[in-house]
Amino acid sequence: MIEVGALRALRSVAALGTLARAAEELGFTASAVSQQIKRLERQVGVPVLAPAGRGVVLTPAGQAIVDAAPEVFQALERCGEAARSVSEGAPRGTLRVVAFSTAIRGLLAPLLRGLSVRCPGLRVHITEQDPEEALHSVDAGTADLALVHDADGLPAAQPPSLTQRLVHTDVGDVVLSRSHPLASATEPLGRADLAGHAWVTSPPGTVCHQWFRRLFAEAPEEPDVRHLVDDFATQLSLVTSGEVIALIPRLARPPLGDDLIAHPLRRQPKREVHAAWRQSADASPALRAVLAEFG
């Protein structure tokens, strides 16, 4: 009979491409993962991995096993959740949550205190991960719940074993110093209002930079970008000088203090935040308790 640990190791190797990366994800040594794979090969009687450069690839037999693995893991999880749901049903144990940094700050951190009062037997363990990595972690069983955002209107590719729910819609505002000429505006700002002003923006490749580029997509001149900074608190420190303004999502925004104000845009950039979890974990009291916090 195939061991569950060996099956999980093979699926991680298949997803990540090397024994070392799979070992890091699973919390084992590369040698231990290698031994699990060899044990699996003895159990099925055929090779499941083949070398490929510095990594490995699945053999046809290995691919067949990985393709069938989700059904095995879902069945095992349903067994465990069925046992928990017929007991007292109180959320308990540890729920492993993976999320991008601003969701941790803006969505998860504010609910932890109330959750600990309502569910004293439940511990929430949070790890920061980008959406694609977070979805893989939940699919692989190394996390229970992911908070992910769409990228420029396009959601991250979701494995078929997962289900998701919209929990928040985030929008971006222009943040500026109270001494800035635009601070006295009484209406939402448009592209014409922003033309000619200097900016600090998030680096290329980030959702916020995509928002910024779209804001000036049809402008006759390139915007004046003075600084590229990934950390939003650092952006705000530069905005305080009065030299530059910034486009910052509300989820990512620390308290502004007395020197800064946030002003809405005429066409507000938006991103949707979804919670994603394994369909086989639907009955989990711990999962349901955390999802209920989002309304």
Rank of each mutant, 00 (worst) to 15 (best):
A6L: 01
R11G: 04
V13R: 03
A14W: 07
A14Q: 04
A14C: 05
A15H: 13
R21N: 09
E24M: 07
E24G: 05
F28V: 07
F28W: 15
F28S: 13
K38S: 14
E41N: 07
V48C: 05
L49T: 07
G53N: 09
G55W: 13
G55A: 10
L58V: 05
L58F: 11
T59C: 07
G62I: 04
G62P: 03
A64L: 08
V66P: 03
A75Q: 14
E81D: 15
R92S: 11
T94F: 11
F100W: 15
T102G: 03
A103G: 12
I104L: 13
V117Y: 11
R118A: 15
L122V: 05
L122G: 02
V124A: 10
Q129F: 15
T142N: 08
A143S: 14
A146W: 14
L147T: 12
P155H: 07
A156N: 11
Q158L: 12
Q164N: 12
L166M: 10
V174A: 01
S177N: 06
G190A: 02
R191D: 00
A192K: 03
D193K: 05
L194M: 03
V200T: 00
T201L: 00
S202H: 07
V207M: 00
H209C: 01
Q210I: 00
F212C: 01
F216S: 01
A217R: 13
P220D: 01
R226L: 14
A233P: 00
Q235F: 14
S241V: 06
E243G: 03
I248V: 15
R250M: 01
R250D: 01
D258M: 06
D259F: 11
L260S: 05
L260F: 09
I261N: 05
R266H: 10
R267G: 00
K270C: 08
Q279L: 13
A281I: 04
